[in-house]
Design a binder for these strands. Sequence first.
RNA 1: GGGGUGGUGGUGUAGUCGGCCCAACACACCUGCCUGUCACGCAGGAGAUCGCGAGUUCGAAUCUCGUCCACCCCGCCA
Length: 596
Amino acid sequence: MRGVTLAYRTHTLKEVDKSLENKTITICGWVNKRRDHGNLIFLDIRDRYSLLQVVVDPENKNTFKIAEEIRSEYVLQITGDLRRRPAGTENTKISTGEFELAASDIKILNKSKVPPFSISDEQKDYDEKLGLKYRYLDLRRSEKKAQLIKRHMITNIIRNHFVENDFLEIETPYLTKSTPEGARDFLVPSRLQPGSFYALPQSPQLFKQILMVSGFDRYFQIVRCFRDEDLRADRQPEFTQVDVEMSFIEPSDIMGITEDLFRKLNSKFEIECNYPIQTMKYDDAMNRFGTDRPDLRNPLEICDFTEILKNTQLKIFRTVIEKGGHIKGFILKNSQCSPTRPILEKINNMAKDFGLPGIAWILFDGSEIRSPIAKFLSEDEISSFKKTFDLGDKDAILLAAGKGGLLQSLGSLRIFLGNEFNLVNEGEFKYLWVVDFPLFEYDEKEKRLNSVHHPFTAPHPEDLEKLDTDPLSVRSLAYDIVLNGNELGGGSIRINNTDLQSKIFKLLDISPEEAQIKFGFLLEALEYGAPPHGGIALGLDRITMLFTGAKSLRDVIAFPKTQSGTCLLTDAPSQVDRKQLDELSISVNIKEEQLG
RNA sequence: GGGGUGGUGGUGUAGUCGGCCCAACACACCUGCCUGUCACGCAGGAGAUCGCGAGUUCGAAUCUCGUCCACCCCGCCA
């Protein structure tokens, strides 16, 4: 079974158990810690799998002499007898804690400089800059190591899941054609075609559709994608996507196969979640939660107070209502948040950061009403509030007035309130499908329609007539999967009919010539018997982040980029030789002094 | 492009409304002692001019301006 050389070691630390007791073994690993008792030295040896305590006795003179020179992170090969530890000296914190290796021979395979930060300690906090520069040391730490191992397990489950369901893994090019829709492309200059550029794919979208035309009715790929946009904690310029496409399907097929996958992942990692996954219309998500990716663990929902306040004496509210705006906000039940005046004032201050003019609040304090707008509230209004929302003592209402953007702002406030009042159970997983997205959105700057998903997304069949009359109300056959407020992935049924595709391009103000230049190859493919098809793309990094509880994508990527897109380990990106540029017919358009 | 937080021996932090600081504490490091530790213990030692640059001041880690780096967020991005 172990088809590997035993020249260096007979066993890894994973294999240390009763079966090796009193046997002579040879192990290899790094010095996690040395404890020198003068006449007895302990070495904690670390390999990929575990830790094992090695004891060096002074009777063994040569070995003891070597052990005295040993320092942290030296790489050792140790031979000795694996024995049970003396009663009372077992260490329950490590998997090998019942045993220790009595060293008879130690060979220093390599020395190590003193590491810039501690690898063994529970020194949790250290400058992330250092960890990124010395990434190889950072990855020795148990936490980071565990995260990468978990990523591997997740990837493996995903691959098996699709393979078991008859999907074919097919690779698509990295050097491909720039498609300036959506995100900014990373460009790669062509040497053989001076002045022309490849682009790194933002996703294999067009290729996977073409594979459907080729008849590979179930395709998947675990594939790197590239987007040249600004970074965030959950956004890296290169990231891994689980790319899936199927023929002869409806949304429920792809949603089903995706749900099955997450069911497997949750079961593997023993995390409870809400099956079957609830489905919510985009409009409902926006109205109830102010976002298209609501965190359902947060119990707060946006309430509409416009009707109750339609005759309000408060001028600023009335003006907004008269202009067609709304008064919306939240009910804070004392049972879940215990709102108090200072907290309500703090919320009011925070609200401004979320683009709200401010938050008015009403606190029910016994039979009294405490509120900055108390004198504008009528008895009727107050009793309507109480009746409609079943309000009791110490409950509070948050109100905000606005028109466009009100819901999004309240969505941000909802997340803040969830954190502030600890309303979110971090250990819980709540999935959600968001469906019935609008097909288009209006681009205020460009004064034209844009695709919400991408231009190949099929319109909802019930809304086809509205394409001509009211395109903004047309829904699409797109779906997003959301977990705890994070978008894990999204997909759609694609258009497989050239006429409809042309019509969509027209609505998007993409001329036939332009469409031909950009996507001509796909459009032509669609004319050769394209089956009905659709798919989904899932963010592997984000999935791993949520399953490991990592706070940043950097924690689940072996070699990530900083927020300014650099790699502190390799110092990429960097300048290149003049000669390289010349070969590519590239001249750099920045001043010499800026080049340093 | 914008807003915010941080940068002090190798590491993590304290000091930051100017003088008590040529900077404190813990860990790591080095030396010595120690036969059952596992966050080993004890004694001793070395190590930073406070991200960088300029300015204000009798005096700057501390104030001002600029700049660099990392992180969080908006814009941007599925």
